[in-house]
Amino acid sequence: MSTMTTPEVMLLPPDANHQRKGIRLSRLAPLILMVSPAILWLLLFVVAPLVYVLVISFLKRGTYGGVVASFNFHNYLRICDPLYLNIYILSVIIAAGTTMLCLLIGYPFAYIIAKANPRNKNILLTLVMLPFWTNSLIRTYGWIILLRTDGTFNTLLTCVHLISHPIQMLYTNGAVMLGMVYTLFPFMVLPLYSSIEKLDHSLLEAASDLGAEPWRAFLRITLPLTVPGIFAGCIQVFVPTLGYFFISDLLGGGNSMLVGSLIRNQFLAARDWPFGAALSILLIAFTIAVIRIYNHFSGSSLGNI
């Protein structure tokens, strides 16, 4: 789950600036004691592994799956192979489709919840989050029960004679998209909800007093003011979709190979770590680019990268 959080304004005790120059060891010691475990942890298990991945992305695959030290750009050139191009195109289509669907369903949904009366609002919001306390893989398994050829949907549809033969629902791109929308839906709803809730209601009243039709007021006021929420929601759905290999694996079978499954296979099945590392670096670069674009357009910042 990659929830993005806006860094909060840092408040400092009033004397911090005064003493900055002459920090004595007695003042420094508690700071080191408090912050260094976290810093060491992050250096060891976040920075070092990522640097290692960057390094092996320039190396060569060994005969038995290991890594051989020989500097080259081969892995990055291989990314452009038409064989893999189709995988990226399919991934982007599915990720974009998932994002659009989440937005189209999520916006009216978040709007209705944000405008509900305060007591219901909390209950409605909790009800959105509640299923997400159950593991996403378990919920994906629930979809398999529903979508299988002999599953609940097909059985029900055959019983009411809407279809004569079970139709293929599982192992299709549609099933993958459904699973993605289902899993990432709250990541769209939460930012939308908070941006709609913050909306100054008097603006809409002013618009209606001045004779604006409700739909016009929505297009000219509500929608532009909630753009940051829309952006944040879209990023939080689009980026994870590229990496959620277990959903495309379980609901798409062999039929939909996405970037996530490709990376997984390089590390576990094909044991071509350098190529998998190059694909991962590309995914990081893409993520950073998306976040930068977001920061540029929204004015606020999503992390300091």
Binding site: S2, P7, R264, S280, L283, T287
Partner: peptide, 10 residues
């Protein structure tokens, strides 16, 4: 922020 924003698979 790195662990918060990078894709889980990475």
């Amino acid at each position: 922020y790195i662990p918060i924003v990078i894709p889980e698979i990475v």
